[in-house]
């Protein structure tokens, strides 16, 4: 969970905060899809570098927070390098613990890791610049997402922020009675967490319904705009990425 608090699509926000969330989702998808076909290390490195510069320039993320946010993606990447290095066929560079490390393996592993970093930095920039409400309002208007799903997701987002405390309380309640083996206890805690969440879901559904969700055509109070600037933004991002693909 990111600990950033984006303030919304307001004229006062940063460059990325002012962009339309649906456009950002589309670009995030495009990046994710493009990387599927990329194994060229220099292209991936360039894209990742540009992503870092872009994130620093267009969001409130400082260098320190951006580095910290990379941690899970780096860990994921290290695992990918390690496993690919020793599982790809080819002449061995070195042998570690009886496993052959191949050049091809290292190259593929590094590419997959860089891919994770690239998606990671774009995702972090997205999360830091997009409040959930704007995302959902924009998706209902610009991507025809059903309001019933959009507002259910928003309610769920609230639930998500309460989840760590609930989990901690359940685990504390188990610990205080001196519980048994860790894994079965964790499994039981999952059932307890689910029961609470499902009961909460029924109450939330009733709250949404009694406020009239799903009764017919609805209006939107603070519309999330889709402007020519968003078009320019999309063109610039795809243009830069295209240039890197063509020339790097």
């Amino acid at each position: 969970m990111t600990d950033t608090q984006p303030t919304g699509t307001q004229p006062t926000g940063t460059l990325l905060e002012r962009r339309n969330p649906t456009v950002k989702v589309a670009l995030l998808c495009a990046v994710s899809l493009t990387t599927l076909f990329l194994f060229d290390l220099s292209v991936l490195a360039w894209l990742w570098g540009l992503g870092v510069v872009g994130a620093l320039a267009t969001t409130r993320l400082g260098a320190r927070r951006l580095v910290l946010a990379h941690a899970p993606f780096v860990a994921f990447g290290v695992g990918l390098v390690a496993v690919n290095a020793v599982t790809r066929p080819g002449p061995a560079l070195v042998t570690v613990l009886g496993m052959d490390v191949t050049r091809a393996g290292l190259a593929v592993g590094a590419a997959l890791a860089l891919r994770a970093l690239l998606i990671g930095v774009v995702t972090v920039a997205f999360l830091a610049s997009t409040p959930p409400r704007e995302l959902m309002v924009s998706l209902t208007r610009h991507a025809r997402l059903s309001p019933r799903y959009a507002y259910a997701l928003l309610a769920a987002h609230r639930m998500l922020t309460a989840m760590p405390r609930r989990w901690a309380t359940i685990r504390a309640a188990q610990a205080v009675r001196g519980s048994g083996p860790a894994l079965p206890e964790a499994g039981r805690a999952v059932v307890t967490l689910l029961v609470g969440a499902i009961r909460g879901a029924e109450r939330t559904a009733l709250a949404l319904e009694s406020r009239g969700l799903g009764s017919g055509p609805r209006s939107v109070w603070h519309v999330v705009p889709l402007t020519w600037a968003d078009g320019v933004f999309a063109v610039v991002v795809t243009g830069v990425a295209g240039a890197v693909l063509a020339f790097a």
Binding site: P131, P132, Y151, R203, L208, R218
Partner: peptide, 21 residues
């Protein structure tokens, strides 16, 4: 906790009116 569904107070109050169009 479950009676309030949206992240911002103003949106929560506006929600019922939005649903009525």
């Amino acid at each position: 906790e479950t009676g309030v569904c949206l992240p911002d107070v103003d949106d929560e109050v506006a929600f019922a009116l939005e649903n009525l169009g």
